[in-house]
């Protein structure tokens, strides 16, 4: 398995492993749970979060279309999650200055998945299991097992960014 923390901004990788989907409302709840001192629905220490809300799995498929959503909407919650040990985030687009600083401080990494290519990404998902917040529908947290997911390192642990 690739050590995500050894990567540099601009690197192309094929990632295999476990990732957790979480987008707007799931982030809000994770932050609330942390605020209340509650146990999180998955072990965030060393984990990878994928900003994604897939379509439903159809005709015997593991998952539906599942590309990344715009990462910057999660910016306000990200420093807190990084503080709790989040290791990597996968999404699309830029991050705020605060997030870049937090990535550097906590030695994490931010990666880009093929944006607008949800059908292509679905081919890399071997297993999908609901983990938390089923009432959020497509925004619930899923545990995905992915194989050879093509990613680009956008911000590395030194805070270097491909967006300058």
């Amino acid at each position: 398995m690739i050590n995500l923390l050894n990567l540099s901004a601009g690197d192309n990788i094929l990632f295999s492993g476990i990732i957790y989907t979480a987008r707007d409302q799931a982030h809000k709840r994770l932050a609330q749970d942390i605020g209340k001192g509650k146990k999180l629905p998955f072990d965030i220490f060393g984990s990878v979060i994928y900003y994604c809300g897939p379509t439903r799995a159809c005709r015997g498929k593991v998952i539906g279309s599942c590309g990344p959503t715009t990462s910057s909407r999660m910016d306000e919650f990200t420093p807190l999650l990084l503080k709790k040990g989040l290791k990597a985030m996968i999404g699309k687009g830029r991050r705020s200055r605060e997030v870049v600083a937090a990535i550097k401080k906590h030695k994490a990494v931010y990666l880009l998945a093929p944006a607008g290519c949800g059908a292509l990404v679905s081919k890399c998902v071997k297993q999908a299991k609901p983990v938390a917040y089923p009432d959020l529908g497509p925004e619930q947290i899923l545990r995905l097992e992915v194989e050879n997911l093509p990613l680009i390192v956008a911000i590395d642990r030194m805070g270097r960014s491909i967006y300058g």
Binding site: T55, S65, G67, T69, P114, C117, G118, L120, P138
Partner: peptide, 24 residues
């Protein structure tokens, strides 16, 4: 490479009758 992925994505969506993008 990114443009290549977009073309490939369109092909997969068409063949598998799957949404091009999760944001339908």
């Amino acid at each position: 490479q990114a443009l290549g992925q977009i073309i490939e994505n369109a092909k997969i969506a068409r063949c598998e009758k799957m949404a091009l993008c999760q944001d339908t």
